[in-house]
């Protein structure tokens, strides 16, 4: 098989294919098996503001709404889908039960590669290190 300018073409192909296959190599060598992170659930509270599924998928939207309602509209009461009322406050409602950012929030956020900007203003529950 005769190729013209074969060396640079093969080098380019190896780089491209290598880059595409790198996740497989990293997955086999570094990660090995991946499991969803285990969250540290609050000890004395079983129910969150909304259902587990809702919180899993839409907590960011809820927090975003809460911020707008509390800080921009002055509305401090949230009524959930079951009709129960909560005070709109990250510090006093959410963090009352979720007492550690590192053991709760960061678990999924690190894996998902997202860094929410809650903590630009708020101080994380376990305090600043």
């Amino acid at each position: 098989m005769k190729m013209h300018y074969g060396a640079p073409i093969i080098v380019g192909l190896v780089i491209f294919v290598g880059a595409l296959c790198a996740p497989f190599v990293v997955g086999m060598a570094v990660t090995k098996t991946y499991k969803q992170p285990e969250l540290k659930m609050p000890a004395n509270e079983k129910e969150c503001v909304e259902s587990k599924e809702f919180m899993r998928e839409k907590h960011m939207q809820l927090l975003n709404d809460w911020r707008d309602w509390a800080l921009r509209d002055g509305k401090r009461i949230y009524t959930n889908h079951a009709g129960k009322e909560f005070t709109i406050s990250l510090q006093n409602t959410c963090m009352k039960c979720h007492i550690s950012k590192a053991d709760f929030c960061d678990k999924c956020h690190t894996d998902a590669g997202v860094s929410p900007y809650c903590w630009d203003c708020h101080i994380q529950p376990e305090g600043l290190k």
Binding site: P23, T31, Y34, E57, Q61, D111
Partner: peptide, 19 residues
Amino acid sequence: AMVDVIAIKELTMGLVTFN
């Protein structure tokens, strides 16, 4: 739809770790 990203990561990581 705000899909469950961590569940999706479990699937995609399953692809690259052949698990």
